[in-house]
Amino acid sequence: MRKISHRTGRRHPLASVALLVVGLFTTGGAYALFTGTATAESSAVSEAQLDEGKKIFQANCASCHGLNAEGTNAGPSLIGVGALSVEFQVGTGRMPMAGSGPQAEVKPVQFVQEDIDAMAAWVASLAPGPALPEEEMLSGGDASNGAELFRVNCAMCHNVAGAGGALTEGKFAPHLKNIDPVHIYAAMVTGPQNMPVFSDMNLTPEEKRDIIAYLKYMDGNASVGGLDLGALGPVSEGLFIWIFGLGGLIAITVWLTAKSN
């Protein structure tokens, strides 16, 4: 009995210190946990993610872009291109390139989003560059203003209906149908490959949102003029009328002059 009371009554000299430490860790940890999730959404860059990003980069991209993204003869330096460039190039499957050609083409995405984010975070940590836009800058724009801006700034290469078009020496401006708004935004900001840059000082983020709204409107609504035949203009329309229009006329002419059985 005495032994028990002795045991329960007696405290280790460091017990209060230990209690204090535990208490501090609990409150501090809880605080860090709650605020931590809040900051994670805006700029979640942990040391582990950077390491991971660097590893993935060095394993997959370094042969052309250099071990520290400094660039080589085969590929440009990526210092200062920002997270947005990585999201665009890797997130659309353009990078890593399958082979050298006039331009990097869209193909199935080679990485999971987590890995793309890690690489983006690492590239962004090298030097300041364009970051991913806020979610609200990607939807809810004014499609009619966007259409005017698109006609002025984009339609010469991407076609007024966003069907894409040819450039020089095998290069082309890709079509813009059903593209993730982040990638439309990223293309305007970063000017990938031969596309000119449309920085926020040229087209404001609101104007970019309007252009995205226009392209999304085009995705969601069929052509008012009926079958658009790919909206390629005289090429597809001419082909159609030569084959089906003239073909139909020839068929009718043959039928007209043939004797009835």
Partner: peptide, 21 residues
């Protein structure tokens, strides 16, 4: 000025690689 809204353009706003109409 920018087409179509007519806002003037500063030289500092024209980043390398940009094209303004």
């Amino acid at each position: 000025t920018r087409d179509p809204n007519g806002t003037p353009i500063k030289a500092s706003e024209v980043t390398i690689g940009s094209a303004f109409h």
